Simulated scan of single mutants.
Amino acid sequence: MSYNYIKVQREGAVTVVTIDRPDAYNALNAEAHREMDAALDAYEVDDDQRVAIITGAGNRAFCAGHDLKQQATGGGLDVPENGFGGLTSRAALTKPVIAAVNGIAMGGGFEIALACDIIVAAENAAFALPEPRVGIAALAGGLQRLPRAIGLKQAMGMMLTGRKVAAREGLALGFVNEVTAGNALNVARDWANEILKCSPLSIRATKEAVLRGLAVPVETAMRDQWSYLEMRAMLESADFVEGPKAFAEKRDPQWLGR
Rank of each mutant, 00 (worst) to 15 (best):
Y3N: 11
Y3H: 14
E11Q: 15
V14Y: 07
T15S: 06
V17G: 09
D23W: 13
D23A: 14
A24M: 09
N26C: 08
A27R: 06
A30F: 08
A32Y: 12
L40F: 15
D41G: 11
V45Q: 11
R50V: 12
V51E: 10
I54Q: 05
T55Y: 13
A57F: 15
R60G: 15
A61P: 06
C63E: 05
C63I: 06
D67Q: 06
L68Y: 10
A72Y: 15
G75Y: 13
G76F: 13
L87R: 06
S89F: 15
S89L: 14
K95E: 09
V101P: 07
N102T: 02
G103K: 08
A113L: 10
L114G: 09
A115G: 10
I119H: 05
A125L: 03
L129M: 12
P132W: 06
P132Q: 05
G142K: 02
L143Q: 13
R145P: 08
P147S: 06
Q154H: 14
M156G: 13
V165Q: 00
E178R: 05
E178N: 04
A181S: 14
L185M: 04
D190Y: 13
W191K: 07
L196G: 08
P200N: 02
L211D: 07
A221D: 00
M222F: 14
D224H: 10
W226Y: 12
E242K: 01
K245C: 03
P253N: 06
L256R: 11
